[in-house]
């Protein structure tokens, strides 16, 4: 019974992911007429016309590079800042700690898109528009709340005795953070970095707001352009989705091993 249920559920979801993926992948080699008439069939003749057209349009590799730069800097810097702050908050016993936590938690509730005019005016004044640095900064600012939220609850779970023993040994708060809290929180950090990665990688709103130069555009923004440019052609849109995703998929498959290893390592120790 359990086995049947398990297999059924797992297969259904797997199919739900494979079929759309296949439609996109196959569709990128088809003509539009074929995309509509036989979405799931193999292309009658495999044509790289769409890819040639997209690549000769240029730019998508620059967009990809920008996305990688913005995402990796945002994730790493946010993790550093958030883990320090979360550790400190989880260790603070007074009201200030709770107030600060509440302040960050409030940031979770404020929808980003309502602040975009003030943010735009502010970044304009700071000369941070059309700048990858600007995107990194706004990403950090907007993802700090969720990171601090997750990490604080993980740090609070850690046994207090462990810190107290080290404190008796003469270690300062920062050493305790670096040599005890950080290594212990690897699974939490792993999970948080996935959150952050997803948010930064997908972010459309802030690039839309802050970037206009085509050489500074990130992938989601470029995809939106392609949508405008080829609004009427699903085969082109699928091709753009493919080109935008393939390097990511390869990287993801490549990193999958260390990713799983990180998760299990945490589990064995915990």
């Amino acid at each position: 019974m359990y086995k049947v249920l398990r297999t059924l559920a797992l297969t259904t979801f797997a199919i739900a992911i494979v079929i759309p993926t296949a439609i996109v992948a196959l569709g990128s080699f088809k003509s539009d007429v074929e995309v509509y008439s036989k979405p799931l069939a193999l292309p009658t003749n495999w044509s790289f016309r769409n890819y040639n057209r997209l690549i000769s349009d240029g730019g998508i590799f620059t967009n990809f590079k920008n996305s990688v730069i913005v995402t990796s800097f945002s994730v790493v810097l946010t993790l550093i800042l958030a883990s320090m702050a979360a550790f400190a908050i989880s260790r603070m016993t007074n009201v200030t700690g709770r107030v600060l936590f509440g302040l960050f938690a409030l940031g979770l509730a404020i929808p980003g898109q309502v602040n975009i005019i003030p943010i735009y005016l502010l970044f304009q004044r700071l000369h941070l528009t059309n700048s990858l640095l600007g995107l990194v900064l706004i990403n950090i600012a907007t993802t700090l709340p969720i990171s601090i939220f997750i990490l604080t609850s993980f740090f609070r779970e850690l046994p207090k005795e462990m810190f107290e023993v080290s404190a008796i040994d003469g270690a300062g708060p920062f050493q305790i953070y670096r040599s005890i809290a950080l290594p212990l929180s690897r699974p939490a950090m792993g999970a948080t970095s996935i959150f952050l990665f997803v948010i930064s990688w997908n972010d459309l709103l802030y690039p839309l707001l802050l970037v206009t130069q085509s050489d500074k555009k990130t992938l989601p923004l470029a995809l939106l352009d392609y949508r405008g440019e080829y609004a009427t052609s699903f085969s082109m849109i699928f091709t753009a989705v493919m080109v935008a995703s393939i390097p990511m998929v390869v990287m993801y498959l490549f990193m999958q091993r260390s990713f799983i290893a990180g998760l299990t390592a945490g589990a064995v120790k915990g």
Binding site: L81, A82, M84, A85, F87, A88, I89, L100, L103, F104, G107, I110, N115, I119, L122, L137, I138, I140, A141, T142, L144, P145, I148, P173, F174, Y177
Partner: peptide, 14 residues
């Protein structure tokens, strides 16, 4: 330890 985080957060979000 909290300062850098709160600074960016306050200036660019709050």
């Amino acid at each position: 330890m909290i300062l850098p985080a709160i600074f960016i957060y306050a200036a660019l979000y709050l």
